[in-house]
């Protein structure tokens, strides 16, 4: 069911939209970095449960740094709950909650992602080569999520520290209740961006259909340009930071207002 193939470097994998990707420097204990094991798991034969158990087992002792997952076929929860600095490539379209709760791992989805990709991510990175469905990066505390296509509705809903970079458009209610982190959208955004926003820094290059309650446009100061430049660079997205506008919280909904006491 599981095949372990010793290879040097990354191999082209059979499956959907294979894309060559550079090897990132491996973290952790590796005696010989030029040669390592890459595990290929074919989800048309193995179950997601088996896959995720194998990935979770790496938290005890790393035996495989690089993982290739083929035939994801829209299955849910692929590579959810990983807790080690693994490199995971998924060739094809992933279903709901892919790479949810990710810690430390770098996950690349060579296809589209379903609802809630990288939801509750803590650290590491998730890159979606295609588009992502709704609630991408929901409630995530850290790490970097890059969506090379479009993001659906509610991108970054209740985000708590994650950085999200969307190269295309994002849907309505994006960054709803966003608490911390940065959300960068290179295309257009739908209705009610940043509704009930706390402290997320939002940068949008395209058109904003409408802003949600308590979300306002803010001045782009040098420190914001610097922050955005660094973020775009880290995401590998070539855009001119000066073409973006910044949005943030007006901070009017933070606390109970005594003016509203008569309503009770």
């Amino acid at each position: 069911m599981f095949q372990s193939t010793p290879v040097t470097g990354r191999q082209d994998t059979e499956g959907l939209t294979p894309l060559p990707c550079p090897i990132l420097p491996l973290k952790g204990e590796v005696s010989n970095r030029s040669q390592f094991l890459m595990k290929t798991i074919d989800l048309s034969a193995a179950s997601v449960r088996d896959l995720n158990q194998a990935l979770h087992d790496q938290a005890k002792q790393i035996t495989e740094h690089a993982w290739t997952i083929t035939h994801p076929d829209g299955k849910h929860n692929i590579a959810a709950g990983v807790d080690e600095a693994l490199k995971i490539d998924i060739y094809g379209h992933a279903g709901y909650y892919c790479a949810g709760m990710n810690k430390k791992a770098d996950v690349i989805i060579h296809g589209n992602a379903g609802v809630g990709v990288a939801e509750n991510m803590m650290s590491g990175s998730v890159r979606v080569k295609g588009s992502a469905s709704q609630s991408a990066g929901a409630t995530a505390h850290g790490g970097l999520l890059v969506i090379e296509g479009d993001a659906g509705a509610r991108c970054g809903i209740s985000m708590k520290g994650i950085d999200i970079v969307v190269r295309g458009n994002a849907g309505h209610m994006s960054c709803f209740l966003g608490q911390a982190g940065r959300l960068v959208i290179c295309g257009d955004v739908g209705d009610n961006l940043g509704d009930s926003l706390y402290e997320v820094h939002i940068y949008v290059k395209g058109r904003v259909k409408s802003l949600g309650s308590d979300c306002i446009e803010k001045e782009m100061r040098p420190e914001h340009l610097l922050e955005l430049t660094e973020l775009l660079e880290r995401a590998g997205v070539k855009e001119n930071p000066e073409a973006f506008r910044r949005y943030g919280s007006a901070r009017q909904l933070y606390n109970f207002k005594v003016d509203n006491a008569h309503a009770y």
Partner: peptide, 22 residues
């Protein structure tokens, strides 16, 4: 409702796949 339903269709790996807008 979900991409899973397409997985067995012939040529799906080269299909254009997207979500309808609201």
């Amino acid at each position: 409702s979900e991409y899973r339903a397409f997985a067995t269709l012939p040529g799906i790996e080269n299909a254009k796949v997207w979500e309808p807008e609201p």
